[in-house]
């Protein structure tokens, strides 16, 4: 379970959000500037809340009353960015392996194989990020995040920089991962259709506040 109760002042803008979600995929929905990315940055630990608590499965990651903050690299929270952010100096194979090396995990050949089949990236392993299409890059980024064995995966508009055809190409992979990867996800999007297909719970944000929380039915038509 993901529990978030945070407030953060960012210049003129403020985020003040509380929700708890048991869902396999929690959608964060809202127009740009509604605080979605600030919120996931706080969950990831890239940004610290001014006040509040963030916990995953009962384990606190932030608790400002105790001045408690778990550093980004110790949180085991995966993050898939809108721009895949693959390491340009490493080939696909070593990009995928990065999280395992950093966390000193033992190699899990079965999971590697399963994910590379699920994401259809097996034939890309020897390529450099610059030689991949946008959709391929995003699939590798998904694999890279999952192979670090996170307890929660944050996806920040992972389809945001892709055109409609590419979106249609990636969406089935995301549904496969949702059903097959066994990792709870927070999925950020401003596209209600995407969330209808993926999310079990939806947090609707407006100007840094929760406007609605519930099932996908809270999404606008």
């Amino acid at each position: 379970m993901l529990r978030v109760e945070v407030s953060k002042q960012l210049g003129q803008f403020s985020v003040d959000v509380a929700f708890a979600s048991e869902g396999r995929v929690t959608g964060l929905f809202g127009p740009s500037g509604s605080g979605k990315t600030s919120l996931v940055s706080m969950i990831a630990g890239l940004m610290t809340p001014d006040r509040g608590v963030i916990s995953v499965d009962g384990e606190a990651l932030d608790d400002t009353t105790r001045r408690f903050h778990v550093a980004v690299h110790r949180r085991r929270i995966g993050y898939v960015f809108q721009d895949a952010r693959l390491f340009p100096h490493l080939d696909v194979r070593r990009n995928l392996d990065y999280g395992r090396r950093m966390n000193r995990l033992t190699r899990d050949a079965a999971q590697e194989k399963r994910l590379s089949e699920m994401l259809n990236i097996g034939h890309l392993l020897d390529r450099r990020p610059g030689q991949l299409s946008g959709g391929e890059r995003q699939r590798v980024a998904l694999g890279r995040a999952l192979l670090a064995q996170p307890r929660l995966l944050l996806l920040d508009e992972p389809l945001g920089s892709l055109d409609e055809d590419r979106k249609a190409e990636i969406l089935p992979y995301l549904m496969l991962l949702r059903d097959g990867a066994g990792v709870p996800m927070v999925y950020v999007s401003h596209d209600p259709d995407e969330l209808r297909q993926l999310a079990s719970h939806v947090v609707m944000l407006k100007r840094g506040r929760v406007a609605a929380f519930g099932g996908p039915e809270v999404l606008p038509a």
């Binding site: 990831a44 890239l46 550093a71 980004v72 690299h73 110790r74 949180r75 085991r76 929270i77 995966g78 993050y79 960015f81 721009d83 952010r85 390491f87 340009p88 100096h89 990065y98 999280g99 950093m102 966390n103 890279r144 995040a145 670090a148």
Partner: peptide
């Protein structure tokens, strides 16, 4: 160097020193 790559490395479990050694320095 795009600092967002360093952020990505830290979300993958790299400590600040490892981010420097595996991302910043090679780039």
């Amino acid at each position: 160097i795009d600092r967002r790559l360093e952020q990505a490395a830290s979300t993958l479990g790299a400590s600040p020193w490892k981010v420097f050694a595996t991302v910043t320095l090679p780039l």
